[in-house]
Design a protein around this nucleic acid. Structure first.
Lengths: 250, 250
DNA sequence: ACATGAAAAGTTGTCAACAATATTGATCTA
DNA sequence: TAGATCAATATTGTTGACAACTTTTCATGT
């Protein structure tokens, strides 16, 4: 019989796939939002690969929390397309199909230029400073070849641009899409993957700073198109049930 | 004349707090998504007013479901800003503050013109037909003064425009915002509330049909601005803790 | 009559046991 | 040995009981 040990929340032994790789002290009160947040981060940093099993028990131990909290967090994540729930089989990090990948980038190419345009038109100076600082973080990560950080920062830039609109709803929408994009890049990124080509974030910010709305929107659009074109979405991977088709047994 | 697809609804007397006002046969398998869907609809039709208590027990009875399902549905709804969860007090239909209301319409005025523009540029004909048909439904509801239907249809039009992009992510984003808008209109709508001024949806569709992207985007923007201007967002209602301020006890 | 406070009732939050399903592993057969 | 069959194990899904908290009711004293 397995006895459930609940409540020890310090120095839980974690394997390489653990989402607690970057061990942080857990907050006093771990709620669903916190678990969601941590899984979000792990996905953004490519520490949680697509299709990774997310066992309830392991999550319970990792966060020192009862099963209910974990299940609620997984439900929220599945509602946002970050996690896939399979009945009686459990939760897995989502592995988007090429079709879904297309849809995500399609949505981003519609939404993000509009948001960026708005930011270019009117933005409090403190947000511009934040974006500048972020870009220097990216430069630093690139200089020291800190790949994991660069991946995360590249995504976060887009979230911060949305945040610069001052509208948390827009930030939330983009954050969801950026996180899913992180999974997509992990799956379909070609070997020469430039998640966010070098100078483009800087160019974008320049356009924003000088209030050039049209250029900003178009730079954002092209930027996203470049990322998408860098993916290898051609072969729609067969799904489970398609074996019959492949073997000509229909 | 317009053929009404799903026309008659048996008028069943129900108490005012039931979300099952429009009694439908429950599906065999009621899952979280279904409950969420029904509450969405009830909010869109202004049958569920802001701040309405959503008791777990009553929802369990209404849907013939265990408490777990209801709780999971409420969690999803709260994540989308449709419902507010207060610890140990339960779930209430959200009643957005003027600030939140501003944020919602602000987001819509950024996103929806961009989506509409995209629809104007390229849309499968079947979607255009769907939009035309929808407008005739609106006309019919207006002609027969079926207010509840008109409210719902006015919101649904915006969702369908997003759907016409062929991108379900965009549809989902807009649906969430439209539903929250429904709450906002219920709270702040002036007496002469024109949820969606008469001919504007039709004008918008015309611009879409002739592929005039710029006009489409600008019509959508102005349309939303008009709706927002029709709201009375002036007096930021005091919240709980502000009593001290009011009484000058700070 | 009013305010105060304690008990009662009702609702939500949490947990643990149980049921249902999936996965693993051992055994058997051709 | 490869494959199939079936028991053993592990994981997830569900339910009901109980704890924690809030709201209501009611008794008491001024």
């Amino acid at each position: 019989m397995v006895k459930r040990k609940r409540g020890f929340r310090k120095s839980v032994p974690t394997d390489s796939t653990s989402i607690e790789t970057a061990n942080k002290a857990l907050p006093d009160r771990v709620d669903e939002a916190y678990i969601v947040e941590r899984i979000y981060s792990a996905v953004m940093e490519h520490r949680l690969p697509p299709a990774q099993k997310l066992s309830e028990l392991k999550l319970c131990e990792a966060f020192g929390v009862g099963r209910m909290r974990v299940r609620r967090a997984l439900l929220l994540l599945s509602d946002q397309g970050i996690v896939e729930l399979e009945a009686n089989r459990g939760a897995f990090v989502a592995s988007p199909s090429p079709k879904e990948a297309n849809e995500v980038f399609d949505a981003r190419m519609v939404l993000e230029p509009a948001i960026a345009r708005r930011v270019a038109i009117e933005t409090p100076p403190e947000y511009l400073a934040m974006l500048r600082q972020h870009i220097s973080l990216e430069d630093e990560a690139r200089e020291y070849s800190r790949g994991a950080d660069l991946i995360r920062l590249s995504g976060e830039f887009h979230v911060k641009v949305a945040l610069a609109s001052g509208n948390l709803i827009l930030r939330r929408v983009i954050r969801e899409l950026v996180t899913r994009s992180s999974l997509i890049v992990g799956l379909f990124g070609a070997s020469n993957h430039m998640d966010c080509p070098d100078g483009e974030h800087s160019d974008l910010l320049c356009a924003i700073e000088r209030g050039d709305a049209d250029t900003t929107a178009s730079l954002m659009f092209e930027h996203l198109r470049k990322i998408k074109d860098g993916l290898d979405l051609a072969p729609p991977r067969p799904k489970e049930g398609d074996l019959k088709d492949i073997l000509g047994l229909r």
